[in-house]
Each structure stands twice: as structure tokens, then as C-alpha cells.
Write a protein that binds this DNA or RNA. Structure first.
Lengths: 132, 132
DNA sequence: CTAAGTGCAAAATGTTTGCATACTT
DNA sequence: AAGTATGCAAACATTTTGCACTTAG
């Protein structure tokens, strides 16, 4: 049974505030410190883990960073996918039926259910292609 | 200009030995210690970085691990893709034309060149689906 | 009251860096 | 000789943990 604590609410509110972006634990912590919110680093990590476990947040490692990003699942559930430019780091949200089709194909033909919310494709974006 | 040092050779040989798998720097280090090979942790990281920079290795973060894996580019260039089971962690190598097609589609229609060697899809594998 | 959550400080991981020394070319 | 690479130890960044204390239900 999860308790509805002040610290849990703080995390949820912050995550909602940044729901369009992925945000790292350490980035959340800076905001927490800036705003002098009442939650410690250890608790932040514990709350994030528990929200992921409950299926409220998604944890994802973007780029070759050593830190994980968190995002509300709500914002991921309507099948859009992420492209990340390897040159400029830009994150592109892609709505694309072909990706859904690929996922169906992999499910039917290769017997593997892809978790659509975690699809991240790396490559070169429009702008960076031009400057090559 | 890169020098062909003993340490560089050690890293290349180890990476070749494990070319079917991704392998982390720390895993390499255990092997290095086991076999009493003559290369330090710092040098290992530096050699890995430099091999990535030269395009000989790929660095990839698999799973939500905080550690990067390395693999020879050779082994990635003939378009196969990676599926990782979120439950059992199994890594599946997938040869699938539909993925190539998706990549072409994204290139043509969305003006983004996906780096095929970095495509990793997460989900549930055959075996874990059954046990759900 | 009891299970769950918290803060702190310390530990654990994974990776990077400064600097003096050693090796490649 | 010049430029590059190395080892060491220390620093760093991110995350986890043990433990005593607090809070929600």
C-alpha cells in the first residue's frame, strides 16, 4: 500500500510540470533545491523508482548519457516515438503509422511485443544533414 | 595519429572475442584482471573512447543500465537490430526487412536518417509472454 | 499501532581527469 | 625529439543503502 506523502506529491507535480520533456533525477533535484522544496535526494530517487514500478512514470536513458530520464506514461501512451539527433541532440516526437505497423509485424512474425513507449531511434536530423 | 600500443591491442582482441555480445567497460575490466592483462581502468576507458571516435566501436546503452556497452561496428553494419526483453533481459538479434523499410520511410518522409546500428527495441519476448 | 516513507551520511557504481612517466613513430 | 599513451590516485556524477526517526492510514 502506497502512502500519499508530501514528497510523493512534490515529485508528481514536478513531473507534470515538465511532462513534455524527459527530465533527469538530478535536474529535478536542482529545481527542488531552487524552490527549497522539502524532499531529499534519496527520497526523490525512491519515489521515482516507485512511480516507475507503479507504471505511472517511464524511465528511459536518452543518448549515451549516464543518467536516466523520467516522464509520465500518459504522455507516451498515444503511440508517438522519439528520434534523437546524434549531432545536435535534438529530440523529435514522431507520429508515424509505419512504426505501429513495424511493431505489429514484430509481434506477429517474430513473437516479440515491442514496448512502443520506449522506441527511440538515433540518427541525423534534417538540419544536421544539411550541414554535413 | 594513433599509436599502436599493447593496451590498444588488448582492448581490440577482447572486443573481438566478445563480438557477438555487447560488453561493458567494467565487464572487460574483470576479464582483464582475471587474465592479469597489462592495462589500467583509466586506459581501458580512454582506449574505448578513442575506438568509438575512430568509428571502430559502437557505444550503446542497453536496458536502463547506467553503464555503456561496446561492440565492433563490423558486427552491426549488416543491418540487424536488437530486441531486448524487459522481463528476462534477453538480447535478440533480429534480421528484418521491415525495419529497413521503416528506416527508409523515416528518411524519405520525415527527413531523419536513422542510424540503423543503434536501433534497440524493448518489449516482451516469446518465453516471457507465455509466463504472463 | 504498524507498515510505509523519510533524511542523513556513507557506500557503491561507472566514468573522467591531472600529472608525472613511458612508449611509438 | 615530438607527440601520444599510460598508470595512479583522486575527483566526479549518478544512484543505492543502512539505520534511526517520522508519518499516513
Amino acid at each position: 500500500m502506497k502512502y500519499n506523502t508530501k514528497q510523493r506529491q512534490i515529485v508528481l507535480e514536478l513531473i507534470k510540470e515538465f511532462s513534455d520533456e524527459h527530465i533527469t533525477a538530478e535536474a529535478l533535484l536542482s529545481i527542488i533545491n531552487e524552490r527549497k522544496l522539502d524532499i531529499s535526494r534519496a527520497t526523490l530517487y525512491r519515489v521515482l523508482d516507485s512511480l516507475v514500478e507503479e507504471g505511472i512514470l517511464k524511465k528511459i536513458i536518452v543518448d549515451n548519457k549516464t543518467s536516466a530520464c523520467f516522464q509520465l506514461c500518459d504522455h507516451l501512451d498515444h503511440h508517438h516515438f522519439h528520434l534523437i539527433c546524434e549531432k545536435c541532440g535534438k529530440l523529435i516526437h514522431l507520429d508515424c503509422e509505419e512504426v505501429d505497423e513495424l511493431i505489429s509485424h514484430i509481434s506477429m512474425e517474430h513473437d516479440f511485443d515491442v514496448n512502443a513507449s520506449r522506441v527511440v531511434l538515433y540518427g541525423l536530423c534534417h538540419d544536421c544533414k544539411k550541414s554535413c
